[in-house]
Write a protein that binds this DNA or RNA. Structure first.
Length: 776
DNA sequence: TGCACCGATGTTTTT
DNA sequence: CATCGGTGCA
């Protein structure tokens, strides 16, 4: 084992090997994009273990659970799975949720505390605002939630808030004098519900470590070596946890890249990495500057972008890789054209260069942009997977089942209880729930207790409804008993069956119902996998409460369904951090979108957007494509757009700016995609000498030919083909209107029509009863 | 109380 | 455009 590991060490370069073999003390590794920082972390942990450090004493904090899992796998191949079994690796949130779980009694929490996700928190805040009768225009639940989150991430407790006149003053100025009350009530209600939100997992950990010296000593002694990945994205709360835990041994290794700090909006403090040397005396600073991931073109282009930022650590990222292809910049008329362009381009590159779907990623600034891309990929029969967005666990039907499970584990969980008390409908309406909430708060009881004691508490509810409530209580109590003798899978199955949720959805006949029931079945499979997967782990039993913690902190990447399928990846740039793909499309390169308009008023905000662009571009190994549209649907309305300022910040020698003919903008888009008419890399063949010798570019020359073979046949009836932009039409219900745009193909062809006095409607031409009055 | 429909409203980014 | 909350009727 050891010999082969030493051999492996030789595969590291000098800059990587030095921090890898640096055993004790504080070290910071400034790692440029693609410089192999994960490798250094992995090898360093393995090295520590070969030096006699027990894996039990190592804590590694990563940014995603997926990163932790992968790293752990690699370590176990290096040193053996038995040796690495006890490593503590995971995100801040999941590691400290685990610790809190075993120490929660000290803080007055049940060990089965519920973890509220962002949606739960917001719902609770909304209902508090409503109960208190505050103006919901002034107190927007989302804003309140963000503010509370910011308080927590900066360790401003309710008490601190009320001791801080400046804070209170600033809320008064912004017309929210009740902010403090809301904050207090929210914290109170979470506590009563036995619930922690995401920020609590960090805040309460700080509380735990600061208030209980024995607990602190226990974990300080245990974690003799601490490693933190993506240190540039830690917030103040996380920073303090790391600081206090590492205080005893000071064996702390942080890895990060200030140029890739992109989470300021959730409290990430770039100063944590900039000031690391001040926090630990005798810090050794290492820099990884050689990029192994990308072509010279990508690396240089990315450098030319980040150069525009003032706040940064100096470093010089370089590569020995080949020049590679230039970055293609493509302008398009609309967002659906953008989708078609990307889909066609992927299709053709796949054909000509023997690429798999999984070699491609499409990155965007906002989740909402995925739709047009998905439509286009589906039309081309290209398999894809969208990461993030509304994740699996946030779907209504999933959250409903999970709400049952959460109540079973913790009956105080208010949000979950409200969710299921009348689902499926059992005659318990909003008024009843409101009365229960009021009574529960008056008597300092949970809603579940209040229901059971409704009579003696004299809650003004009719006896017939009380009976219904009792039935609900018995149902839940039955589940609780069942759960005591079952694993997570058995109880989940029982809930889905007994409540009839699964069967009702399945038999309602609608496609939505079917798909929902399938999702629930998938959830059940997931629980099963969880139970089976945990079996060999010593400190896990596959219980429901373990599963719920896992689920609350799971992201899309952790959902291992379809993981081995060959799909194009679609995700936001944020989610793409840490990943790499041979071919990357960055779409929506427009002002008012990227950079986000919310972030352009301050230098710091704009610089963060620029770092985001830097992250996006440096995901690409071989080639990057940037696209922007001249118009885009937003909130159902067509808006015109300008190219992003970031495009002009890229050094011109690295790009090919493909500008379509002026004429094609005005042409109606009918029957064929415009990309069947316009060769994708048209400009390349004309203007770029040094690409001619490149074997891959000769392959690309054939693209035009393939294009013509790939026209999509339009099987819609003849009449439908006649509609075009500008036509005056009449609809049975909406009256007269003008065709604004036509999109889609075949039976999917749609027309957006501006009806007089009604507005723009999008109609499926196959179904809409439309008559042409006059042609454009 | 439940359900169907309507209109208002909102989009950064996520653990 | 999609979701959500509110309203009004059975």
């Amino acid at each position: 084992m050891k010999e082969s590991f030493i051999e492996n060490l030789n595969s590291l370069n000098e800059a990587q090997r030095l921090p890898t073999l640096h055993k004790d003390g504080a070290l910071i590794i400034i790692a440029g994009a693609g410089s192999g920082k994960t490798r250094v972390l992995t090898y360093r942990i393995a090295y520590l273990m070969t030096q006699g450090v027990d894996s039990f004493s190592i804590l590694a904090l990563t940014f995603t659970n997926k990163a932790a899992r992968e790293m752990k796998e690699r370590i176990s191949t290096l040193v053996g799975s038995n040796e690495s079994k006890n490593l503590w690796m995971g995100t801040f949130h999941s590691v400290f949720a685990r610790i809190l779980r075993s120490e929660s009694d000290k803080l007055g929490y049940p060990s089965n505390f519920t973890i509220y996700d962002a949606q739960d928190s917001e719902r609770l805040i909304r209902s508090i605002i409503k109960e208190k009768g505050y103006d919901k225009e002034l107190y927007k639940s989302k804003q309140i939630k963000n503010r509370i989150s910011a308080f927590k991430n900066n360790l401003i407790t309710v008490k601190t808030y009320f001791n801080d006149l400046d804070l209170q003053e600033s809320d008064k100025i912004s017309q929210r004098p009740k902010m403090g009350d809301l904050y207090r009530e929210y914290v109170d209600r979470c506590f009563k519900a036995g619930a922690m939100d995401f920020d609590d997992l960090l805040l309460r950990t700080n509380e735990l470590l600061n208030r209980f010296p024995s607990v602190l000593a226990k974990y300080q002694d245990r974690f003799k070596y601490i490693l933190v990945d993506e240190y540039q994205d830690t917030n103040h709360s996380q920073y303090l946890i790391v600081k206090i835990l590492s205080d005893k041994f000071q064996n702390i290794c942080v890895v990060g890249d200030d140029a890739q700090s992109i989470y300021a909006f959730r409290g990430a403090n770039i100063n944590n990495i900039l000031n690391f040397q001040k926090d630990y005396q005798d810090t050794t600073v290492y820099k990884l500057e050689q990029n192994y991931r990308s072509t010279k073109t990508i690396v240089s282009a990315a450098n030319s972008i980040i150069k525009h930022n003032i706040t940064k650590l100096e470093k010089n990222v370089w590569t020995n890789n080949s020049d590679g292809e230039k970055i293609i910049i493509q302008r398009l008329p609309t967002d659906s054209d953008e989708g078609r362009y990307v889909a066609s381009s992927i299709f053709e590159i796949k054909m000509n260069m023997q690429k798999n779907n999984s070699d491609f990623a499409i990155l965007y600034r906002t989740n909402a942009q995925s739709r047009a891309l998905e439509d286009a990929l589906r039309n081309r029969d290209i398999q894809y997977r969208v990461y993030g967005g509304v994740s699996f666990y946030q779907r209504k039907e999933i959250k409903d089942i999970l709400a049952y499970l959460r109540v079973i584990v913790n009956t105080k969980d208010e949000e979950s209880l409200k969710r299921i008390i009348n689902y499926p409908p059992r005659g318990i309406g909003q008024t009843t729930i409101d009365k229960l909430v009021v009574s529960a708060n008056e008597n300092n009881l949970s809603i579940f207790e209040t229901i059971q004691r409704a009579m003696e508490l004299k809650v003004p509810i009719s006896s017939s409804i009380i009976i219904k409530l009792q039935e609900f209580v018995s149902l839940i109590k039955g589940f609780i008993i069942f759960n005591e003798i079952s694993n997570a899978f058995e109880i989940s199955n029982e809930v889905a069956k007994k409540t009839k949720i699964l069967i009702d959805l399945k038999s309602d006949g609608t496609p939505e119902g079917i798909s929902k029931s399938e999702n629930i079945e998938e959830l059940l499979n997931g629980v099963k996998d969880f139970v089976e997967g945990q079996r060999d782990l010593a400190d896990f039993n596959g219980t429901l409460s373990e599963f719920l913690i896992d689920v609350a902190l799971a992201t899309d990447f952790d959902n291992n369904k379809n993981n081995n399928q060959d799909t194009v990846s679609l995700m936001t740039i944020h989610l793409a951090k840490g990943l790499e793909f041979p071919l990357v499309y960055i779409v929506g390169m427009e002002e008012d979108l990227f950079p986000s308009p919310m972030n352009i008023d301050t230098r710091g905000g704009l610089e963060e957007e620029r770092r985001l662009f830097y992250v996006a571009l440096t995901r690409a190994k071989e080639q990057a494509f940037l696209t922007y549209s001249e118009s885009r649907y937003r909130w159902g309305k067509l808006n015109s757009c300008e190219p992003s300022r970031f495009i002009s910040e890229i050094d011109e020698q690295y790009i090919i700016n493909s500008t379509p003919k002026d004429s094609y903008r005005s042409k109606p888009i009918i029957n064929t995609s415009i990309f069947d008419r316009i060769p994708i890399i048209k400009k390349r063949t004309l203007s770029n000498d040094n690409l001619i010798n490149n074997p891959s570019s000769t392959k690309l020359l054939k693209l035009r030919h393939i294009n013509s073979l790939n026209n999509v046949t339009d099987n819609s009836n003849e009449l439908l083909k006649k509609f075009k932009k500008g036509d005056l039409v009449e609809h049975q219900r909406f009256g007269k209107g003008k065709v604004v745009i036509i999109e889609g193909i075949g039976n999917d062809k749609k027309a957006s029509i501006d009806f007089y006095g009604i507005g723009v409607k999008k109609l499926l031409l196959n179904f809409a009863k439309l008559k042409i009055i006059s042609n454009a």
